[in-house]
Amino acid sequence: MSVGEEVESRPRRRASRVIRFALIIGAILLLLFGVPWWTLIVSGNDWPTPVVVIGTIVFAVALAGFPALMFTGHGRGHHDVPAKIADTMLGVVWVLFVWSIAGQILTGVLWAAGVGTPARSRIATVVVALIALVLLLWGYAEAMRVPRIRRIDVTVPRLGAGLDGLRLVLITDTHYGPIDRARWSRGVTAAVNALDPDVVAHTGDIADGEVAQRREQAAPLADIRASLARVYVTGNHEYFSGAQRWVEHMAALGWEALHNRHLVVSRGGDSLVIAGVDDRTAAGSGVPGHHADHEAALEGADPALPILLLAHQPAQIEGAVAHGVDLQISGHTHGGQIWPFHYLVRLDQPALQGLSRHSERTQLYTSRGTGFWGPPFRVFAPSEITLLTLRAAA
């Protein structure tokens, strides 16, 4: 192939990828909106014609408008009004999609039980609508509340006796975004401070939007207190929202931004290395100097000391194992956020939530997240502020 032919083929390959991506997204949206439309509007319900027409128009308009709202809201401009509409639509349609599938199963059961048409379809439709409504109202309340405290004891065999009982508070995935949660942020700060932490860690995804847009919501982070350290690493969403500016802003708020670096905390004559690495998406973000680098993060650290590593994604645990980390703390998964999305999360991540072991030395704690991304709902995946109490070996 000549140079000219090669150059000409690149745009064709890019165009092919764009078309393939668009077709996949289109198919997913047709399923997400189409299954609820079929279950609630058509599917043997025998509703009056005006109901069918109006219902079909509502679903068609939602399907057509959703991509534009999502792109406008979460594109470079981060326009909050379309983002709020698109995010809410996504949450509603996901819940309707999941329970519409269950509704079709219920219809089959009613058919087997001898219930005639259209009664069986209408019964299933009412059940689906009621369950979806209850879950969405409850899920909204769960998403907007200040998270409950989750208390976990973690034994770190290499931890010195002087650090036994160290109180580490983990917050993550605050996702300050289109819905103004400045008051919620102040509540989180109060809850963290009430735990009297030695170390507070934020493992990324601070916000969806630039510092200038989310400054007020993030401001209460400056008031969080810790006797030894406040530390932070980037998440994948920082790389849509000015990662380096968030690193600098967190430093301005008094946090140690562990941008592939570490610090050492000491108490009672014993010490602990606290290291942090950038998110695993950083290398492909185009932000200069950002990439996950465990070697740089641990350069100069005493290998005899125990290591606590901040890394946004549980999937970064392989690097932690390879570098002898004792405990990695992560977020990213949101615990699935809206059931049963956690099955999809597990395809990409080695852990969904909680404490897990990944080598003889290395443990991983995965938080379900302090805030929420996008849809303002949490269904069977409660948020958390985590108090990890580190214990030395007996």
Rank of each mutant, 00 (worst) to 15 (best):
N193C: 12
S2N: 14
W37I: 13
R148C: 09
A222V: 11
A222Y: 03
W111L: 12
I41L: 13
G165S: 10
G108N: 05
Q217A: 14
D198W: 06
P50S: 12
Q213N: 04
G269Y: 03
P178A: 12
D293W: 09
A219G: 08
T56V: 11
D223T: 13
T125R: 03
E216S: 12
V199H: 02
A315Q: 05
L390K: 00
G139H: 01
G108E: 04
E360P: 00
I385M: 05
G116F: 10
K84L: 03
W38D: 09
G354H: 01
W373E: 07
V192M: 06
F59S: 03
A129E: 04
N45K: 02
V127H: 10
G165P: 08
R368Q: 15
S227Q: 12
V98K: 00
G354K: 00
R20H: 10
Y365I: 05
D198V: 10
Q217P: 06
F21M: 07
S266K: 05
A112K: 09
H342Q: 15
D293V: 13
Q104E: 10
P178E: 07
L347V: 15
D164E: 10
W111Q: 13
R361Q: 14
H290F: 05
E8N: 07
V265I: 15
F71Y: 13
P306M: 09
W138E: 12
N260E: 06
P376T: 05
R214P: 02
G269W: 03
T72D: 08
L298D: 04
T49Y: 13
L30H: 09
Y140P: 00
V58Y: 10
T117D: 09
G177I: 03
T88H: 09
G336F: 01
L130R: 04
S330Y: 00
R10S: 07
T370C: 07
A191K: 12
A113K: 07
T234D: 08
G284T: 06
V154D: 02
R148D: 14
Q217L: 06
L221R: 06
W255D: 00
T370Y: 03
L272Y: 06
V199R: 00
